[in-house]
Simulated scan of single mutants.
Amino acid sequence: MVQKILRERFCHHYATGKLFGIEHQYRHLLELLKRTAVHGESNSALIIGPRGSGKTALLNHVLKELTEMKQVRETLLEVHLNGK
């Protein structure tokens, strides 16, 4: 609970629904996954970082934008796996 409150106050990406401070990583992941979906490139991405650093938020924002693109939406197959 304390982590969530601090994250909202300092990172702003949970409170505003926007990502803060990781714009480069966002653009890179978006382009990588877009090329994979549209052009069939065989790409993999490993997103690493400490717990609570925004890995899931980053991926969810990228997937949301991808599903809003017509050319991607037609070819994208989204599968969520949870190792918990």
Rank of each mutant, 00 (worst) to 15 (best):
H28C: 05
K4D: 10
V38W: 02
L32W: 07
L33D: 00
F10K: 13
V38C: 07
G40K: 13
H28E: 05
C11R: 04
S44V: 09
A15C: 10
K4C: 09
H13T: 12
K64W: 02
K18Q: 05
L46G: 07
L6S: 11
V38G: 02
L32R: 09
R7N: 09
R51G: 15
L63C: 03
Q71S: 10
T67D: 06
N60A: 10
E41Q: 15
H13E: 06
G17I: 03
S44W: 07
H28T: 11
R73E: 02
G17V: 02
K4W: 08
E23D: 05
H28Y: 06
I5R: 12
E65W: 01
A37Q: 01
A15Q: 13
F20G: 05
L30R: 04
H12T: 11
A15G: 13
L19T: 07
L59C: 12
R35C: 11
R27F: 04
E74D: 11
N43F: 10
A37H: 01
R27N: 10
L6Q: 08
A37C: 11
E74F: 05
E41H: 15
E23G: 06
H80D: 09
Y26W: 02
A45N: 10
V62K: 01
T36H: 12
F20S: 10
N82H: 13
S53N: 11
L30Y: 04
E41D: 15
E8P: 15
F20Q: 04
E8Q: 11
S44T: 14
R35F: 05
K64P: 03
G52V: 08
C11K: 05
Q3H: 13
L46T: 08
S42V: 15
L66I: 00
H13C: 08
A37K: 00
H12N: 14
L66H: 00
H61A: 08
Y26G: 01
M69R: 06
L76M: 02
K4L: 12
E31W: 06
S42M: 13
N60K: 14
A57H: 00
V72H: 02
Q71Y: 06
L19M: 08
E78P: 12
V72R: 01
Q3T: 15
N60W: 06
K70N: 12
R27Q: 10
Q71G: 12
H12E: 05
G54F: 00
A45C: 13
E74L: 12
V2M: 11
T16N: 07
E8R: 08
V79H: 08
A57D: 00
E65K: 03
I5C: 10
H80Q: 12
R27Y: 07
I47H: 06
